[in-house]
Simulated scan of single mutants.
Amino acid sequence: MNRPMPGKEIGYVVDYYGVFDHLSSALADYEDADVDDTMRSMAEEVGGLAPAAEAVSAYLARLGIADGDLTDFTAVRSAALAFGEETVRQDFDEVLGSFLTVLERVLPHEAGLEYVGRARRWALLQKRIRTLHRDAPGGSFTLRLYGRKVRAMIADHLEGPEIDQVIAPVSLSSAQFDEKVRTMPAREAAAEMGHALRFHLEERVKREDPEKYARLSERLEEILRELPGRFEEQIAAFGPLMDEARKQDEQDPRLAGLSPLEQRLYRLLDQEIAERSGIDVGQADLREVTGAVCGTAATIMAQAAYQGQHQDLAELADKIRMELFKARLRPAAGADLTGLRELAERLAAYAEENRAAFLAWSRGE
Rank of each mutant, 00 (worst) to 15 (best):
Q126I: 00
G68V: 01
R204G: 00
M39L: 14
M1I: 13
R264Y: 02
K8M: 10
I65S: 08
D91G: 08
G282A: 04
A214C: 06
G47D: 12
A332C: 00
Q251F: 13
F20D: 04
G18D: 07
H22T: 05
L145Q: 10
R62A: 09
K127R: 11
D156Q: 14
A33I: 12
S277V: 01
Q283E: 15
Y350A: 10
Q126W: 10
G147S: 06
L113H: 15
L227H: 06
R276D: 09
E192H: 12
L23D: 08
S217W: 10
A196H: 08
G84V: 05
D280K: 08
R182T: 11
A348K: 05
D37H: 15
Y59S: 09
V150T: 07
G308M: 03
E272G: 04
R130P: 00
G11E: 13
Q165R: 13
G139M: 01
R363Q: 11
E353F: 01
P185F: 06
S78D: 15
L268C: 01
D32E: 15
I10N: 14
M193K: 12
F92R: 08
I273F: 00
E203T: 07
A61F: 02
R105F: 14
L316T: 06
K326T: 12
L27W: 03
S173N: 15
L224M: 08
Q311T: 14
E345I: 01
D156C: 04
R219N: 07
E315K: 10
I320M: 10
R40S: 13
G7K: 01
A136K: 03
Q283F: 07
R276Y: 04
T38Y: 10
W122R: 09
K180I: 14
D336W: 03
V13S: 08
E9V: 10
K149I: 14
Q248W: 03
L268T: 07
G48A: 15
E250I: 07
N354D: 02
M301I: 04
L23I: 09
S57E: 13
A214G: 15
G139K: 02
Y59G: 08
M322F: 14
A168D: 12
G308C: 00
L224S: 02
E104Q: 13
Y306W: 13
D29N: 11
L70K: 04
D249T: 13
D164G: 14
G112A: 10
V289W: 04
F141R: 05
S98F: 14
G11H: 09
G68Q: 07
L258D: 11
G18M: 05
L269W: 00
N2R: 12
